[in-house]
């Protein structure tokens, strides 16, 4: 009787207006059978976390191409932790220099996907890493 589906939140933190990647990923996750909530542009970390909690998502995908990732991504992870919801998987994507990656991964972003990543790899990663 259990009809569990993976619920994903695709979010654009900050002011960056490039949403081609975010929308492609959202569509790919939908086509992989997930229920995908897309926030649209210009979300604060607080708004993203509030949405994630109300929607009870299994995974949050953050996208930024403006260089603000080092500031915005960890803030999302921090707020999620404050709410005691470390069970939610957080991943990120965009133009993210290699040297920032390990730092983001230390701060709770489980995986960073940059340009050229196959959406199939993202799907696989989510399926293998979301909570049961």
């Amino acid at each position: 009787m259990d009809e569990k589906r993976i619920r994903a939140l695709i979010a654009k933190p900050g002011l960056d207006g490039h949403d081609r990647g975010a929308k492609i990923v959202a569509q790919a996750l939908r086509d992989a059978g997930m229920e995908v909530i897309y926030t649209g542009l210009r979300q604060t970390p607080e708004q993203i976390v509030s949405t994630a909690l109300q929607e009870d998502v299994d995974v949050i995908g953050l996208s930024s191409l403006s260089g603000a990732h080092s500031h915005l991504f960890p803030r999302v992870a921090e707020l999620i932790e404050e709410k005691g919801r470390q069970d939610i998987l957080i991943i990120g994507g965009g133009v993210i220099p290699e040297k920032d990656r390990s730092d983001l991964e230390k701060k709770g972003i489980k995986q960073i996907f940059t340009s050229g990543t196959s959406t199939q790899d993202i799907i696989k990663f989510i399926k293998e890493n979301v909570r049961d």
């Binding site: 900050g14 002011l15 960056d16 604060t44 403006s66 260089g67 603000a68 500031h71």
Partner: peptide, 21 residues
């Protein structure tokens, strides 16, 4: 981006974006 979106550098939404692109 804050300049492009009409926000001063002290606006809360500008946080992390000032001087970035």
């Amino acid at each position: 981006l804050p300049t492009q979106i009409g926000l001063d550098s002290d606006h809360p939404m500008a946080s992390g974006e000032v001087g970035k692109v």
